[in-house]
């Protein structure tokens, strides 16, 4: 198989706040190949968005990438000068944000916001840029794109705005798109449509897609690989079907248990007991320890990320794996 388009290795992004260091991203690794989808899953506050911002180089102070590498076609984005990073941003690497109601500038027309994106990276005339913008709107299923270009964001519904944001992300047919929960704020039906369209376009253009979500069921039908985050760390990663079938990490098992499913209809949903720990002053050792049914004294030592089966990594001393469980 080909080399991955994007490979994140041991990424650490910390926020140096007055209250202390918030290790929002603390050892995150994953990789995506062209045309594939990588699902980044985790609870609220687990560091998914910060991971996304680290990839496109938009971590603002007091935050800073403190370690690791972000290899994009072999180049390390973590150490790339800002000018070079800017020529990639929105061009080869694009991001779609969490809240479609907030991502478009309310006082600028859609055409302004699209044309400027085209012209930021391609030396083309305004007319040509408008053509491309119109085509992109058509691609994401916005009816009468010529008219819609003249509109302001408030004249669109949430779903339509997210389509516009996706169209903007697709303008330069990027190699990587980081989609940060782009459908959570939308209706279920529209969620499904957008999901399917985004996936189709990425396969078509050979885009590597990082799909961030807290909803395991979204990722199950969409992604090729999956990385589960907990308190700033990836705790399990691997091909999505295998992970869903036989999770190694107790946290992943808990997540799967809390997804409503047809087979267990009528049964109450199982919840993971306890709360996500505060990222300030995390205790040493496994961060999931206080909520883990399999915890044991050894878990007070930081568990290493280990490959328990080919392509299957987990950060747990006592994983759900009879063959390796000691």
């Amino acid at each position: 198989m080909s080399a991955p388009t994007l490979e994140v290795r041991n990424l650490r992004t910390h926020f140096f706040t007055r209250a202390g260091v918030v290790k929002a991203v603390d050892d995150v690794s994953f990789s995506v190949k062209a045309g594939q989808v990588m699902g980044l899953v985790g609870e609220s506050g687990s560091g998914k968005t910060v991971t996304g911002f680290s990839i496109i180089g938009l971590v603002d102070p007091p935050g800073r990438i403190t370690g690791g590498q972000i290899l994009f076609k072999g180049r390390d984005l973590a150490t790339l000068p800002e000018a070079e990073m800017r020529s990639l941003r929105g061009n080869r690497i694009a991001m779609i944000f969490q809240d479609p109601m907030m991502t478009l500038n309310p006082v600028l027309r859609i055409d302004t916001q699209m044309i400027e994106t085209v012209q930021a990276h391609a030396k083309v005339s305004r007319e040509e840029a408008r053509q491309r913008s119109r085509d992109a709107l058509g691609q994401v299923g916005i009816p009468s794109p010529d008219e819609r270009l003249q509109s302001y964001p408030h004249q669109f519904s949430g779903g339509m705005r997210q389509r516009v944001a996706i169209a903007i992300a697709l303008l330069h047919k990027p190699d990587v798109i980081v989609a940060d929960e782009p459908t959570t704020a939308l209706d279920v039906t529209i969620q499904g449509q957008i999901l399917a369209e985004a996936q189709k376009l990425c396969t078509q253009f050979g885009t590597a897609l990082v799909w961030i979500t807290h909803d395991l069921s979204v990722v199950a039908g969409l992604a090729d690989d999956i990385a589960v985050m907990y308190a700033g760390k990836v705790v399990e990663s691997g091909p999505v079907a295998e992970v869903m079938d036989a999770p190694l990490h107790p946290y992943t098992l808990g997540l799967i248990g809390s997804v409503p499913s047809r087979n267990r209809r009528g049964e109450p949903l199982r919840q993971i007991p306890g709360m996500t720990p505060s990222l300030l002053n995390l205790p040493a050792g496994c961060a999931f320890r206080s909520r883990c049914p399999r915890a044991e004294p050894r878990c007070a030592e930081p568990p290493p990320m280990a490959e328990y089966r080919p392509g299957r990594h987990a950060r747990c001393i006592h994983p759900h794996d009879e063959a390796v469980a000691a």
Binding site: R86, R89, A94, M95, F97, N105, A120
Partner: peptide, 28 residues
């Protein structure tokens, strides 16, 4: 605001972000 971060994520120059995206909003 998210829309300023999004404008930056599009790869716009800092001048364009400041004088178009930010300035037009504070003018209000």
């Amino acid at each position: 605001m998210d829309y300023v971060k999004f404008a930056r994520a599009k790869g716009l120059s800092p001048a364009r972000v400041t004088f178009v995206h930010v300035f037009k909003n504070i003018l209000i």
